[in-house]
Simulated scan of single mutants.
Amino acid sequence: MSGATKLPDEGIMALSDRPLRSVLYIPASKGRALEKARDLPADAIIFDLEDAMAPDEKAAARALLAEDLAHGGYGRRLRIVRINALSTAWGAEDAAAIARMDCDAVLLPKVESPRDIDDLRALTGSLPIWAMMESPRGVLNALAIADAAGMEGFVLGTNDLAKDLGCDTGGGRAQLMSALQTCLLAARAAGIACVDGVFNAFRDEDGLRAECAQGRDLGMDGKTLIHPLQIAIANEVFAPSSDAVDLARRQIAAFDEALAKGEAVAVVDGKIVENLHVATARATLARAAAIAAMESA
């Protein structure tokens, strides 16, 4: 899959060769923004044909985006296009157009059941599908959606979800925690990626860092962003620290040494290291290597 891969027999998610620390929304109608995005250090870009477009802009934006993607130049960044919901006047035309665009995946908004994914797949064929998880019904059907054919990732739409729930998104997001974890559990069970929702106050660096850290600690693969100023913090927070990489290497070395002695357990820094810890350590090193490859491309 494009975003995350399941390690054999371990059930632990690791980033693939294209990390998802920073996933930036770009309006598909803004030619200058599209051009600038080629040089931004985001891991992935969501080219938006939905919320960022006025109704009378949508057809022109679709044509502009097709032309822009055909020119290439986005390097190893994952290129995801968010279309309009199939229930709208633009959704079916978006889907037909996206099937011919040079992109990596299509992002479907307002997903509430696996049938939504099946309907899209009938229009886009083998193009990988991501789902916006942004309604109570969608969250409650998260596992069935994650298991649908063609699915590769979830993007959490926390603003829409909060609106439907009638809750605030501040205060550590306790009000949204059950929904966040339900979607993450479903994604991990199905072996697909899961990217956290946006942080609206894009000039609040401390707030963004705290929410990125929360998403990372929950197990999210990265964070969706609304402004290029947010990229550096997301990239930093969702990357393994030098201490984490060092510990992972020492855990693997100690465990390998224990196995050579016929033992199944090692000790590092006074803590037990078993095979499950080694699987996590290998995932950490794989993530660090993927990020290094991304940044050197």
Rank of each mutant, 00 (worst) to 15 (best):
M1H: 09
M1S: 14
A14C: 10
A14L: 13
S22M: 04
V23P: 00
K30A: 11
R32I: 13
D43I: 00
A44C: 12
I45V: 03
I46M: 13
E50V: 13
M53I: 00
A54P: 09
P55A: 05
D56Q: 13
D56I: 04
A60G: 14
A60L: 09
A63T: 15
H71M: 04
Y74P: 00
G75K: 10
L78R: 05
L78K: 11
A96W: 02
A96M: 02
A97V: 06
A99P: 05
R100S: 15
A105K: 00
L107D: 04
K110Y: 09
K110H: 11
P114A: 12
R115Y: 08
I117T: 14
L120F: 00
L123W: 07
L123S: 10
A131P: 14
M133L: 13
M151P: 08
G153L: 03
F154S: 07
L156F: 04
G157Q: 05
L161R: 00
L161Q: 06
A162S: 12
L165F: 12
D168R: 01
G172H: 01
Q175S: 13
S178G: 06
A179W: 04
L180I: 04
T182S: 13
A187C: 04
A201R: 12
L208H: 07
A210Y: 05
E211N: 12
A213D: 14
L218Q: 14
D221T: 13
G222H: 08
T224L: 15
T224P: 07
L225P: 00
I226W: 03
H227F: 05
V237L: 01
A239M: 07
P240G: 14
D243C: 06
V245C: 15
I252D: 01
A253R: 15
A254K: 11
D256I: 03
A266P: 02
V268S: 09
N275Q: 15
T280N: 03
A283Q: 02
A289W: 03
A290Q: 03
A292Q: 03
A292S: 03
A293V: 00
E295H: 08
